[in-house]
Amino acid sequence: MTEARESAGPHARHAPGEPCWVSLMVHDLAATEEFYGELFGWEFRPGPQQLGPYVRALLDGREVAGMGQLPPDRRLPIAWTPYLASDDVDQTADTVRLCGGTVAVGPLDAAEAGRIAIASDPSGAVFGMWQGTLHLGTAITGVPGTPAWSELLTFETEIIAKFYASVFGYEEEPAVSADLDYVTLHLGGRPVAGLHGVGHALPRDRGPYWQTYFEVADADAALRRVVGLGGRVLRPAHDSPHGRVATAADPEGAEFSVIQDPR
């Protein structure tokens, strides 16, 4: 995960179903820019304004994420939302509805960025769908400050895995351990996202949600920066088979994880 990976060229496309973008809607956009800019080294430039003020986060001049400002009267959960690639977002939105999900926003055009929609799966977890044109999503991965993994925390995986497989054509790989309810979603034999069934461990006031992991050079140091910038540590850094991981929340409460590549 330490080697930078860029798109194959100006006409490259994410495979349908591949996580291609992460976005965060907040109440204080300026303060949120300052937090993540200091934490991940991001800079910002204006993005599509169809849903209100919005900026794209850049790392070394390449786009990695987006952030927008909620209207003052909208008291929605503050959460990072993954966008899954689609070749035809209108058709994908129809499939979401047919499979028991809900389409809350769109599909709608987002200027030069393409066409997007925001939906929820049958358990209520929110995700986006993106049919890219000139702007093709996250332009670089595999270095500190970039999205590394998307994982759905849900009640149980069996029904929800069937939903995502039906909509996006994923292959499912259940965990080997009988004590762990986990399904890895694959496209073309490559893992692209995970579903983690945690039962009643989900917060009662939140329900199922997608969690974004960001790569960092040092997970422990990243948590110290989070606290210094006004955020909170939710789960301290610990070693896992995939690297050293931790979970934190920004000053508005948006939860995210960091992962330090073990190599």
Rank of each mutant, 00 (worst) to 15 (best):
R56H: 12
D239A: 11
C99P: 01
D87W: 01
A15P: 07
G47A: 15
V89M: 04
I78Y: 01
H27S: 13
A175F: 05
I160D: 05
E173I: 08
H186G: 07
A193E: 09
R224S: 15
H27C: 02
A79R: 11
V198S: 04
A79P: 06
I116N: 04
V26Q: 02
S257K: 03
L195F: 09
L51V: 03
A178Q: 14
L229K: 00
G231W: 04
P241E: 09
G17Q: 07
R235E: 13
I259A: 09
E172D: 01
S123F: 08
S257R: 08
H11T: 15
Q49I: 00
G128Q: 06
V258Y: 06
V96E: 03
I159A: 15
H242E: 13
M129S: 08
G228L: 04
G142K: 00
V176P: 05
H11E: 15
L70N: 05
P174D: 02
R74P: 00
G199W: 07
L59E: 10
M25C: 06
G68P: 12
R225V: 12
R204I: 07
A248P: 14
F168R: 03
D261V: 00
L98H: 10
A79W: 03
V183W: 08
R5T: 13
V258P: 12
H200D: 14
P72Y: 05
F127D: 08
L29M: 11
A248N: 14
Q69Y: 03
G142I: 00
D94I: 00
I78A: 03
P10Y: 09
G231N: 07
T247K: 10
D218G: 07
S240I: 07
G189D: 03
L185P: 12
I78R: 01
A31W: 01
G188T: 02
R75P: 01
V245M: 14
V258S: 09
K162F: 11
R13S: 15
G142C: 00
P16H: 08
S120H: 12
P203V: 04
L70A: 10
V258R: 07
G207Y: 06
V198R: 02
G197E: 03
T95R: 15
T2Q: 08
G169F: 02
G9Q: 10
R62G: 09
R45K: 15
L51E: 02
D179L: 13
A110E: 13
K162E: 15
A125I: 11
A113F: 14
A246K: 13
G207F: 06
G100K: 01
V103K: 05
G52Q: 01
C20K: 00
Y54E: 05
Q50N: 05
G132V: 12
V226W: 06
L195W: 08
L153H: 15
G17H: 07
G142N: 00
A161P: 10
L195M: 09
G228H: 03
L153C: 07
